[in-house]
């Protein structure tokens, strides 16, 4: 099993990141791609800007990967990359790719991974609009609102 984790300012290459988890023993590669949406309610969004507490964010993502290894026995490889800095509308902020021998575990693990990234990983986004002041967002999933860390 190999785990690939990165946080950086580069554009995320879909092919490159999905390919990292390919394996001859895998019958499935499941992935999630998060992109910048062009609107928030009735506001037009111009871009997002991400900031990370990088050392801790990497550590929290590693924990997620270990949890996946423990919870889902069929997992082969895991790749998680988060882009920070400016992410324009339509571009990718996060990609999670997980391979498994059969599809069920990698599909479930991808869902668990993105939900948990949004809950515990110290990364923040600021949303910029065309006609109002930018706003730091809070994920409703954030562990800050749910007592158990």
């Amino acid at each position: 099993m190999t785990i690939f984790i990165e946080i950086n300012r580069n554009e995320i290459d879909i092919n490159d990141w999905n390919r990292k988890v390919f394996d001859n023993g895998a019958g499935a590669v499941s992935s999630f791609i998060g992109t910048t949406r062009d609107h928030f309610k009735d506001k037009k969004v111009l871009k997002l800007e991400y900031e990370a507490y990088e050392a801790m964010a990497l550590k929290e993502i590693e924990k997620i990967c270990k949890d996946i290894q423990n919870q889902y026995k069929d997992i082969i490889h895991i790749a998680i990359v988060h882009r920070i800095g400016e992410v324009p509308v339509g571009e990718i902020s996060i990609l999670i790719a997980i391979s498994s021998s059969h599809r069920s575990d990698s599909l479930k693990a991808v869902n668990y991974a993105i939900d948990t990234v949004k809950t515990t990983v110290p990364i923040w986004k600021k949303e910029y609009y065309d006609d109002s002041e930018p706003n730091w967002k809070n994920n409703c999933e954030s562990c800050h609102y749910h007592p158990k860390i």
């Binding site: 515990t120 994920n139 800050h144």
Partner: peptide, 10 residues
């Protein structure tokens, strides 16, 4: 020591 506001990654 770090102070961590509610997170909003992803």
């Amino acid at each position: 020591v770090a102070i961590i506001p509610p997170v909003s990654g992803g």
